[in-house]
Design a protein around this nucleic acid. Structure first.
Length: 367
DNA sequence: CGGTAACCTGGGAT
DNA sequence: AATCCCAGGTTAC
């Protein structure tokens, strides 16, 4: 049996002060506490403002830590903090139900609120969508009952692009490190519970970072992708940011074609950017998880095959055929249900009900 | 055009 | 201990 995890004391970091341990899920209060006696009420007690949303419209733990963004930090199980434009914002569930937000820095309240609602894609009713998906697919209905409130965000295209270039053939932990590095190039906007937050850097700022610096920061071969993409964007006549934003007005195929012209952006990454930032609601990012889902339920005849770029579009088509023009939103839930963390939960939920109806459990044997 | 081998890096399995 | 394999893929032969 393996040795237990070392005690919570900091690892014997060798020489110079290595960066602090990688961020995991929670930021427990190991940080130097502010001296209690010295803080009167003057310290900004955050003002929580209700959003009046049921958790069926927005459930934070199924929206933020699920791979759409690596910029938001989980402060407690039910509070997430991140930056939208210049605004440092926290979101939390009170009573584990309704959602409230607070603004930590001294920016315009009204602008923060409107940008937040936009970021949360609140113009779209998740419950309406899911009722359609459930009608089209009883299996979706079953999952939806357990995992409600998994919403697709509407992120800034540049932020989204850079994040997903980092994500390719990579794991969550390192993606987060890399995104943290890029973020730290932007303007500092404040800290919450010991975690520093930054605006996302501008294209100009990104252009100041060499491939070599990114390599040293641990980007591996993605360093040249970042560099190349930033340069490519800067060469766009009307400006790179404007060019990216203009993709929101194109159809999905054209948007994907434009995106994949950038180095480090293939079909999967392009679909992520399209869905998570460009209003392409039927974009379906096909990765290994989605491939498994698809070959199990949607196109079983392809089970066992290896996932090739060609098959990616086939899978995406199958999703659209089944779920319609918001197929990307359906995919999001199905994807989340595949995550190990959620699977464990679903499993335990299932077992309490299992005894009642054995049904047929044969099907997959395989190999 | 479709199929394959490198590609940075770190952790876990063999 | 040395390798292999894999992780929300893309690129170049």
């Amino acid at each position: 049996m393996k040795r237990h995890r070392p005690l919570p004391s900091p690892a014997p970091s060798s020489t110079t002060g290595t960066p602090k341990p990688t961020i995991t899920h929670y930021y427990s209060s190991k940080k130097p506490k502010t001296p209690l006696l010295l803080l009167p009420d003057l310290k900004q007690t955050p003002k929580w403002i209700p959003l009046n949303l049921p958790k069926s419209e927005l459930y934070l733990p199924l929206t933020f830590p699920t791979g759409q963004t690596f910029r938001w930090k989980q402060i407690t199980p039910f509070q997430f903090t991140g930056v939208i434009g210049p605004h440092l914002i926290s979101l939390k569930h009170s009573n584990q139900t309704h959602v409230s937000y607070c603004l930590h820095n001294n920016t315009s309240q009204s602008d923060a609120r409107s940008k937040l609602l936009d970021f949360l894609n609140m113009a779209i009713s998740l419950t309406d969508l899911w009722s359609d998906f459930s009608a089209a697919d009883p299996r979706f209905a079953e999952l939806a009952g357990c995992l409600s409130g998994a919403r697709v965000l509407r992120q800034d295209p540049l932020e989204c692009l850079i994040q997903f270039i980092c994500s390719s053939n990579n794991n969550i932990k390192r993606i987060t490190q890399m995104v943290d590095f890029v973020s730290s190039l932007g303007n500092y906007v404040g800290e919450v519970e010991g975690v520093a937050f930054y605006e996302f850097p501008t294209l100009e700022r990104l252009a100041e970072v060499s491939e070599e610096e990114h390599r040293k920061a641990g980007f591996g071969y993605r360093a040249k992708y970042i560099r190349g993409t930033v340069e490519e964007l800067q060469s766009k006549p009307g400006g790179g940011v404007e060019w990216l934003m203009s993709l929101r007005k194109l159809d999905l195929e054209s948007a994907v074609e434009a995106l994949t012209s950038l180095p480090g952006v293939g079909p999967k990454v392009a679909a992520c950017i399209a869905l998570f930032s460009l209003d392409q609601h039927h974009a379906v990012p096909v990765d290994t998880h989605v491939w498994k889902i698809a070959t199990r339920y949607l196109i079983p005849e392809l089970a066992g095959k290896k996932l090739t770029p060609k098959l990616c579009s086939h899978v995406a088509d199958a999703f659209v055929e089944r779920y319609g023009k918001y197929a990307g939103w359906a995919q999001t839930l199905l994807f989340i249900a595949e995550l190990p963390s959620q699977k464990a939960l679903l499993q335990s939920l299932n077992e309490t009900v299992k005894d009642v109806k054995p049904e047929k459990i044969k099907e997959e044997e395989g190999s």
